[in-house]
Design a protein around this nucleic acid. Structure first.
Length: 858
DNA sequence: CATATGACTTGACCGGATCCAT
DNA sequence: ATGGATCCGGTCAAGTCATATG
């Protein structure tokens, strides 16, 4: 019952439809969005269909009865709470709180070890983040052990018909605004009409529409959180299925699913085929055969990735290929060589310009960059060119021309800018969409990368090299067999190759001009259901780890003392990945920046400091520095010492280890487990845990602070950094000045108050604004003082968080590591509009998570 | 087994759009 | 209305991991 009501309605561009048909449309869109592969037939009102497995999870959440599990969880959670509370004496340690919402699978989750559901990093406090600013310390410096309110909230949630709560909320929202709030949500559903007809791609009116309506007015929050009642009941009824197993231990779920889902999907497939054969589908068998044929033809993998659709990613795929950057337009501005203007061919000038526009970047300070640039440019200049070295080159004229151009652009009127944008849109529109199994989906990067100078990160050996222009003849297109082959946008040229490989998701690729062994792919956008599905699978895997983590920790703890060095290294590496959320650390070539991950840590990267502290200092992905001091278990400390002995600083710490060995080992512990799953797990469980512990039932603003705090902890764990903005220090001083100013105001007010009490007029005739002061009574003055004090306090807080976050990037974890269902469910529980936390693109990307049950826990 | 290749996710950063205080 | 701060989408580099290959 309550589940039926308790659901986010996904509103969208259909909001304006006539009331009567709205639900129907909604249902269709909703369905199509999630089930692109499952084509409806017949009257949409009497839809009959089965859900793809990935959706049935979601829906199952709501349709199944959760009453029992919830109460069970309560009991478990509480006992865990009290236990871990006692055990966790350390103040800066994250305490367990109501934890597992489910009985865990195989590895039995006995309460004594309930802590095992916490990331290690929380259990064992990080001694100190040496790192510049997040010196702060682990989560929850002064967290009250029992977040009673939040636990309570959850309880009451369960007891109260949620429809009530959401009803009231949604009313507020929708009365404000009838704008579609989750505009993108339905974008792939829009194909319901213009299915499979290629020409329609170009004609589609939705995207611009959508864009406009979304940008004209900022969507009001909470609109998307609407009562479920409006949701078509039919959907639910049909959806309700044996896949409702989110409350079932994963181990069981797997077993259970196998037969049921295969049954179902086969039946569905038949339907699909019936319908979509109109466009191109053969029977399932046939397509499988085709696959095989194709496989031999293109020597495609014969192995099928488990899980999704037998390795087949799509059945029909229609798109318009890619769009190329405009060809180079020579500007004719002459650079100087030894002070004299030089004539350059357009080709030479183009490369010179690439360099010129980078004159004000830090790359100019890197000899490697200049050297590589010169090497490539010289090839184009030719040996006997006037220009014989870079030192005597003066690119200033071109640089200044470029600056002037930028300035010109800036000075354009809004109308002009708009016109240009529209023009661009018109050209690009047809490339923006693909039709995947009859559903229109956004394409991610349909623009071919323009030529330029390679901007490697860190000390990349190839920085500054010329990234040459990509031509159609470099590009391989992947498209459905029966789809028309995209016209090559450059007259007289043609694609390199056309493939029909439905075991992959890319629409096109070309070889990276910098490293011709590598590819650049064109994929669907993050909002597509293809991406959404794999995203969900990622988080489900991480959740599964929760059930295994205890066993895994026990296992590696045991192996800390293993006499087999390889096993010992595996154990320690796993420990570090678990505790610190390190990346796996693949081997790298010499022609890449010298960065490391766990398996590639060097001796010099980990400094043991007795009795049991490890000091990490290394360059990780993107040459971002990881600095951390961590207290570790003694056996680990000893092991690290042992691994270091007899080695040079530059030697591998884990000499018996690489990522494939490590992952092979992890796979034995849990199917599908790899190193990166720990990062996801660590991030998501931390968020879930901190939200539960710290949400005190305050107002939206306070709740948002809680969320941001949790988000920040995750970002710190994952070492997601950003460069400090150039104006940061200026901003800080400005803030300080303002605070001081306000403090001055306070002083003045206080003296005025004292005088007023004695019946005297204010001391100075004029206030800070230069106007004469009014003669206020003491009460008014006191009020003013309080008000100003509040203002000061707020500014102090803002200042603090600003300083705190100046090097922390919150976005990365939100996009990649935090299970959106945690956020959505929390928002539902605490009446926080999801739009406060997810912007438009995140809402689209996470559309699959929007109707999660409010009681969802990671 | 080690290495190469291929496909896909994760990541910081940039520049324009939007917001907000003045 | 203005200008600075912030947000956001886009960009493309740099990871992870599975599989093929020798």
């Amino acid at each position: 019952m309550y589940q039926v009501k308790n659901r986010l309605k996904v509103t969208g561009s259909c909001t304006r439809s006539v009331a009567l048909t709205r639900n129907r449309k909604l249902l269709l869109r909703f369905f199509l969005f999630f089930c692109p592969k499952f084509v409806l037939y017949g009257n949409p009102l009497s839809i009959s269909f089965a859900l793809p497995e990935f959706l049935s999870h979601i829906v199952g959440d709501e349709t199944g009865s959760r009453v029992q599990p919830v109460s069970a969880r309560r009991a478990i959670g509480q006992s865990i709470l009290s236990k871990s509370h006692k055990r966790n004496a350390r103040p800066d340690t994250v305490k367990s709180s109501s934890q597992p919402s489910k009985p865990s699978p195989k590895p039995s989750n006995d309460e004594v070890d309930s802590e095992d559901d916490k990331p290690l990093s929380c259990r064992i406090s990080t001694v100190s983040k040496v790192d510049t600013n997040h010196a702060k310390k682990g989560p929850g410096t002064s967290v009250s052990p029992l977040p009673k309110p939040s636990v309570k909230d959850e309880d009451s949630d369960d007891e109260k018909p949620l429809s009530l709560k959401y009803n009231s909320k949604s009313k507020v929202g929708s009365s404000n605004n009838h704008k579609p709030v989750v505009p993108k949500v339905h974008q792939n559903g829009s194909a319901s009409k213009d299915n499979t007809q290629l020409k329609n791609i170009g004609l589609n009116k939705r995207p611009p529409d959508e864009e406009r309506s979304a940008s004209v007015k900022k969507p009001k929050l909470s609109d998307s959180v609407t009562p479920v009642n409006q949701k078509p009941v039919a959907l639910k009824a049909e959806i309700k299925s044996d896949d409702d197993d989110d409350d079932v231990p994963i181990s069981q779920r797997i077993k259970k699913q196998a037969p049921s889902s295969s049954n179902k999907s086969s039946s569905v497939k038949q339907k699909v085929m019936k319908k979509s054969s109109s466009s191109l589908n053969q029977t399932n068998k046939k397509s499988k055969k085709m696959m095989k044929q194709k496989q031999s033809k293109y020597s495609k993998p014969s192995k099928i990735p488990p899980g999704s659709g037998e390795g087949q990613k799509w059945t029909s795929l229609v798109h318009n290929g890619v769009i190329f950057p405009p060809e180079y337009k020579p500007h004719g501005v002459k650079m100087l060589y030894k002070g004299k203007p030089v004539d350059l061919t357009p080709e030479q000038e183009e490369v010179a310009t690439m360099f010129s526009v980078m004159l004000d970047t830090d790359y100019m300070a890197k000899p490697q960059f200049k050297e590589n640039f010169w090497g490539d440019w010289r090839k184009i200049l030719g040996k006997n060119h006037t220009i014989q070295n870079l030192e005597n080159c003066d690119f200033k004229p071109i640089y200044e021309w470029h600056q002037a151009e930028k300035e010109k652009k800036k000075l354009m009127t809004t109308e002009e800018k708009k016109a240009i944008k529209e023009e661009k849109m018109k050209i690009e529109e047809k490339y923006m969409w693909a039709i995947v199994d009859g559903v229109k989906e956004k394409v991610g990067n349909f623009r071919v990368e323009p030529p330029g100078l390679f901007r490697g990160r860190g000390e990349h050996p190839k920085m500054g090299k010329l990234k040459k222009r990509i031509h159609p003849s470099d590009i391989t297109i992947n498209i459905g067999k029966d789809a028309p082959i995209p016209e090559c946008p450059i007259p007289g040229e043609s694609w390199k190759e056309i493939r029909h490989d439905n075991t992959v998701t890319w629409l096109a690729y070309w070889n990276d001009p910098i490293n011709s062994k590598e590819f650049k792919y064109v994929f669907l956008a993050a909002s597509s259901s293809l991406k959404g599905q794999s995203d969900k699978e990622k988080y489900e895997k991480a959740r599964k780890l929760k059930g295994y983590i205890e066993g895994i920790r026990k296992a590696y703890t045991k192996d800390f003392g293993n006499s087999d060095v390889t096993k010992k290294q595996v154990a320690v590496a796993t420990y570090l990945i678990d505790k610190l959320a390190l990346r796996a650390g693949n081997e790298k070539d010499d022609d890449e920046a010298d960065t490391v991950g766990c398996c590639t840590l060097k001796v010099e990267n980990v400094e043991p400091e007795p009795p049991n502290i490890l000091k990490f200092d290394f360059l990780g992905k993107d040459s971002i520095r990881y600095q951390n001091e961590v207290e570790v278990e003694l056996p680990v400390f000893k092991a690290i010492q042992q691994f270091r002995t007899g080695k040079a600083g530059n030697d591998d710490l884990f000499d018996k280890l690489d990522t494939s060995k490590l992952n092979a080992h992890l796979k034995e512990l849990m199917p599908g487990l790899t190193a990166k799953v720990f990062r996801t797990y660590n991030a998501s469980i931390t968020l879930d845990d901190m939200l539960t512990r710290e949400t005190k039932g305050g107002d939206v603003t306070q709740n948002l602070v809680v969320y941001q705090h949790a988000n920040k902890e995750v970002a710190i764990i994952c070492n997601h950094q950003r460069t400090v903005s150039k104006s940061h220090s200026a901003q800080m001083t400005r803030l300080n000045e303002k605070i001081d100013e306000l403090k001055g105001v306070i002083k003045e007010l206080e003296s005025d108050l004292a005088r007023a009490k004695k019946g005297k007029p204010p001391s100075n005739k004029n206030g800070p604004d230069g106007k004469p002061k009014r003669n206020l009574n003491p009460e008014a003055l006191e009020k003013k003082i309080a008000h100003t004090n509040a203002k000061i306090e707020k500014m102090e807080r803002d200042k603090e968080t600003k300083e705190d976050l100046k090097t922390v990037a919150l976005g990365t974890s939100k996009i990649n590591y935090l299970d959106p269902r945690i956020t959505v469910a929390w928002c539902k529980r605490h009446e926080v509009p999801i739009e406060k936390l997810f912007n438009k693109s995140l809402l689209a990307k996470f559309a699959w998570s929007m109707d999660v049950d409010p009681s969802f826990r990671f």
